[in-house]
Design a protein around this nucleic acid. Structure first.
Lengths: 340, 340
DNA sequence: TTGAAAGCGCTAACAC
DNA sequence: GTGTTAGCGCTTTCAA
């Protein structure tokens, strides 16, 4: 079935393609009679304009590239959902690029998105979460940003030159720590994450600071890293429980780790929170799925997604936007923490 | 910064655009010297061809539309991950369309994907999961499929005319039911799902059949529906526990429901599986996150995604493919079920 | 209000 | 091996 084009419509309506284009986009007044005629044919042939041709000529595609490190991690679908909700009415669609945490893939996708002429890019994960990103990797993104608008979500690059919207993780970590301290805990551990990633480093720094401000000490062996997985939470919690001294509360780098920690603690015969309090970070849906429900710090993923789109949209429209947009995290007290 | 085009390269290399195009796609031999010269310029200007122009002319975009009902439901990211893995080397990228369960959105996206000239569509959720899909909705998809290749994932439409790949849910439900019966359970309930959705109906049918074959009876009030959420699992489990008779095992329509059921049962003071066995369906990551780990039936989401891409890819290449591809589910025994 | 025609950037006959 | 040129399907001046 041959694709019907604007020419076919124009021909049959005995007008020029320009006129058809005008009714398609109502970009100029068209006499009612001819407009009706054209509309009729459009319906008759179920005509739909070829977006490629249109984009080629208009130099805008109405599509946004979304780069994520792992769509399987519930954090990202939540953000994506916010993105979707905010951007749909603005007429955008999304090229979803899962880099599975590979910097090389990130580079590839940056190129592909450029070739596909996306109007903008939302970048999450990977290199922008590194404490010290290599100059080459950073430059690559900056270069890309010089051609197409990019906003970094929950990340940054040396030089601070790019637009970004992020959660104040320092504040979040303070909230969490103070919550535990307020509950009477004095022996608090921190587990999970990679210490070469900024998200981990920031939390640890804020955690230590809050502890220090309250005159509390943290033994070296109570700050344990691995990664961000459930397994990592299990592993690290086990190490904590096997140690000579046992903390009364544990601050986990994210909810995954916290879930693992709860699992291990429970299985080892400890009651959460009676014997040990556990707090997570993110507030993914999983947090309320388990028993006990997780006390955590909400990253407001949906808001994060929405705001990112707002910023990107302005960037695309060449409006002025401030480089940084900070979103306030929120402490969500549920069942996995209690008074000492 | 003006976009550099194939013309700019050709001009500076003192060759024609055709030659540049040839080295870009190596679609014909080019003298080494001139090829080198061109390559040099390509690097010098960081030239990347405009995919819109290319697609417009070649009539293929290398992009696949993926329609999902809710990316926030872990089932779909898992499938998407499989899709990604399989399709990346084939050179595809993905337009992810979240319909948030609205048929209208499905229609809109079908149109958008057509306008954007995607090479193919992977359709999940919504209307294709209905027991009785309205003729209009079905026709719309069929119509779309007549223009661009579509494969339905885990769903169907009246007429069976479209290509689809799906899990054998009947077999899955049999596996689950037999597992419980084999454990000595005779009083088994089924909870969750919508009874106007084929995925629910199929499971219930297979469940009843397996029970009957073993001479087991199912009281009317032990087949309870609501939806597919955790909350629904909680609600329905509560109803079960509040009833005059209590089943010793519960077959849940999916893992979400099962997680809710476990939560409610545990909180009501019952031990899972000692007091009551609970089995889920899907095997999403959440299944191993909770305590006890969920016995379930794996939908092999990654395989589902991969195979769907294989089928779609062949369709796109105009190869013959059989209309139906069935994937065998697998019983995953973990901790939430035990002998009566 | 409408039409003619020049792009948009690339591919692919076809000719040399 | 390489160049010319006619598309691909739509938008957008510029004239009328």
């Amino acid at each position: 079935m041959k694709q019907v084009t604007i020419y076919d419509i124009a021909h049959e309506a005995r007008v020029s393609v320009a006129t058809v284009s005008r009714v398609l986009n109502n970009t100029a007044p068209v006499k009612l009679a001819t407009r009706d005629k054209i509309m009729e044919l459009i319906h008759k042939y179920q005509f739909q304009p070829n977006a490629l041709a249109r984009s080629l000529s208009k130099k805008e595609t109405g599509t946004i590239g979304v780069i994520v490190p792992d769509i399987t991690n519930p954090f990202f679908p939540e953000v994506f959902s916010g993105i979707e909700k905010e951007a749909r009415d603005k007429g955008y669609t999304f090229l979803l690029c899962d880099t599975i945490g590979s910097y090389e893939r990130e580079s590839q996708y940056l190129n592909i998105l450029r070739e596909k002429q996306v109007d903008g890019i939302l970048f999450m994960g990977g290199r922008i979460n590194l404490s010290r990103c290599s100059p080459e990797l950073a430059e690559e993104v900056r270069e890309a940003a010089s051609r197409t608008p990019i906003v970094l979500i929950n990340g940054n690059l040396p030089g601070n030159s790019l637009h970004r919207v992020y959660i104040d993780e320092t504040l979040g970590a303070e909230l969490a720590t103070r919550h535990l301290i307020g509950l009477g805990h004095r022996e608090i551990a921190f587990i999970g994450g990679h210490d070469n990633m900024s998200t981990t480093a920031q939390k640890v720094r804020a955690f230590k600071k809050a502890m220090r401000e309250n005159g509390l000490d943290i033994p070296r062996e109570w700050v344990l890293h691995a990664d961000f997985s459930i397994e990592s939470g299990q592993l690290l919690m086990k190490r904590l429980l096997d140690g000579p001294r046992r903390p009364t509360a544990v601050f986990c780098v994210n909810d995954f780790t916290a879930v693992g920690a709860v699992k291990t603690a429970t299985r080892a015969g400890y009651r959460v929170p009676e014997d040990i309090s556990i707090i997570g970070f993110d507030d993914i849906p999983l947090a309320t799925a388990i028993n006990p429900e997780l006390t955590t710090v909400s990253q407001k993923m949906e808001t994060l997604g929405r705001v990112s789109v707002q910023v990107l949209h302005k960037l695309i429209g060449k409006e002025k936007v401030k480089k940084q947009t900070v979103i306030e995290p929120e402490l969500i007290v549920r069942e996995s923490t209690s008074a000492r």
